[in-house]
C-alpha cells in the first residue's frame, strides 16, 4: 500500500493525498481554495478526474458533507483547443 505522499490524486499536476491534507491543516477547507493552493485540477483535463476524488478526501478529513466542500466553477473549453482553430487570420486582427 502506497504512502499518502505517493498516492496521486491529480495526475496532470502530480498532487498527492498528502498535499491535500497539508492544505487542510493550513486551514483551507473549500475546494476552490484547495484547487489554487495545491494546483489540483489545473492541468489539461481541468479536474475531470481529480476534483470528485479530492472532494471525497476533503469531506472525510473535515467531517463535512461533500455539498459543503463545494465544487469548482467548470471553465470552458471542455477540451483544450488549438489557437489556429479559434483565430481569424483573414480578417482584421487589429
Amino acid at each position: 500500500m502506497a504512502e499518502n505522499g505517493e498516492k496521486i490524486v491529480c495526475r496532470c499536476m502530480d498532487v498527492t493525498v498528502d498535499d491535500i491534507m497539508k492544505a487542510i491543516e493550513d486551514g483551507y477547507t473549500d475546494i476552490e481554495s484547495i484547487k489554487r493552493v495545491t494546483g489540483l485540477g489545473r492541468g489539461p483535463c481541468q479536474g475531470k478526474t481529480c476534483i470528485p476524488i479530492a472532494i471525497g478526501i476533503i469531506a472525510r478529513a473535515t467531517k463535512k458533507h461533500p455539498d459543503e466542500v463545494g465544487y469548482i466553477t467548470p471553465r470552458p473549453p471542455v477540451k483544450p483547443v488549438f489557437f489556429e482553430l479559434l483565430a481569424d487570420e483573414e480578417g482584421e486582427s487589429e
Binding site: P44, Q46, R75, P76, P77, P80, V81, F82, F83, E84, L86, A87, E89, S93
Partner: peptide
C-alpha cells in the same frame, strides 16, 4: 497568432 505565429499550435486550456 499575428504577433507570435508559432502560437497557432498551442492549445487554450481554460
Amino acid at each position: 497568432v499575428r504577433y507570435i505565429p508559432i502560437m497557432r499550435k498551442v492549445k487554450v486550456m481554460r
